[in-house]
Nucleic acid binder design. Structure first.
Lengths: 228, 228
DNA sequence: GTAATAGTGTCTTTGAGACATTATCTA
DNA sequence: TAGATAATGTCTCAAAGACACTATTAC
């Protein structure tokens, strides 16, 4: 009775911040369909694999990134009957946030990979329905910064308050008052925790280093400036 | 190269409020596996069907509910290799919120359907991984009330502020100050909009009737009382 | 010293929490 | 009339926004 003719894929919206801009990792497809076009990295789920496992594996295989260095969460599933000309493919999209490591971004296949600025890539035509998946991923990331400490996922394990603030400013495309942000970061329970260490050798006064706090959710949240 | 041996199902977490308690619609399975056990309503996606379409269809077929009467959104996907003994089934779960219509809840199959109180059903063993799907659905509903006007999805098209407040109190298992809630509902842009009509024939002063506002998100949100 | 950046403090405004009072209906 | 429920108003407190100042480094 059940139709068993489905394939299941995972696609990754892998975001990072480099050169003060939000970037997504794209791969150029080396095989049809959409050969030569840019797409999100991804691949098919194997028959004995859980979805999360497949996402971790694809992250490693297609981008050379170890899952422990990134935050990874399920985003949503996309299953239009004709979204893939090869057949009936349901894609489970994952959102990954990571610091700007000098990651190889070396695709296992001959496909080339590249970080692209979010604000420039939206204009391009991505393969499949990946423009919509990307848009959903970016919006999820923006929303998550409001009520979780996950902004730190874009930073190295130890970071300064100013670095964390630029993450927020970059992802939200806004500017935030450094003093108010500092107060919010310090006083909100479980947002960041001090390491005791400081930066050195930089210009200006050394900054204290923090790591991500243990909170799952920020209370109260750190809301984006209203759209108006 | 892609494994095509997957089946894809949709499962529904259909929530409503009746008798001052949050209820979920469950069906008793008439066929193996898990015969005789309670499960979320759901079924397999057909090969020419989009995921959302399948969710709407299952909502109609398994519960007799028309999608226009409910709020329906994708929740998450579950794909452990052995979550279904019949084979490799990936389930795309949907969350549905609806008013307490005298819905037939008549399963198309011989399966019986029943509304169960959330606080009582958590103890029981549901089929498959449906206990986890249900928990995720309830948490999503609780969170959505904070920053969207979707609490109104539990109400009839026109409702009073007091009715909307009891929705929040029921879903969050808390009590809210009627006067503060009234102020919040009225002054938050796009939360509710007046119809001009009022209740009549009830005890006490008649209440104004409202319908759901147009806002996608509430700003500022209406936060749950802190867990502490 | 100067320039640069980090960190702290204060005032104001907005919004939520606590709570009293008035308004309008049914019985 | 009494009883019930709706709606509004006031005071207080917590937290965000705006903004000035002090602290600590490199040079």
């Amino acid at each position: 009775m059940p139709d068993s003719g489905f394939s299941v894929a995972v696609d990754l919206v892998l975001l990072t911040i480099r050169e003060s801009a939000l970037h997504v990792l794209l791969v150029r497809r080396g095989v049809p369909p959409y050969r030569g076009q840019w797409a999100l990295p991804g691949g098919f789920v194997m028959l004995d694999e859980d979805l999360d496992e497949a996402a971790v594996r694809e992250l490693r295989e297609e981008t050379g990134v170890d899952a422990s260095a990134a935050h990874l969460e399920q985003l949503a599933s996309y299953g239009h009957p004709r979204r893939d000309p090869r057949g009936r493919v349901v894609s489970v999209a994952y959102l990954a946030l990571m610091p700007d490591l000098p990651a190889p971004t070396a695709g296992s296949d001959a496909a080339q990979a590249a970080w692209r600025r979010i604000d420039e890539v939206n204009l391009k035509r991505l393969a499949f329905d990946h423009d919509r998946i990307l848009a959903d991923g970016v919006e999820r990331a923006r929303a998550k910064l409001e009520y979780t400490p996950l902004g730190a996922a874009f930073c190295t394990p130890e970071f300064t308050i100013a670095e964390l603030r630029t993450v927020y400013e970059t992802v939200w495309s806004t500017t935030l008052d450094p003093r108010n942000f500092h107060r919010k970061a310090i006083t909100t329970d479980g947002f960041v925790e001090p390491t005791g260490r400081s930066t050195a050798g930089e210009r200006g006064r050394p900054a204290q280093l923090f790591r991500r706090g243990q909170a799952k959710v920020l209370y109260p949240p750190l809301l984006r400036p209203p759209p108006a």
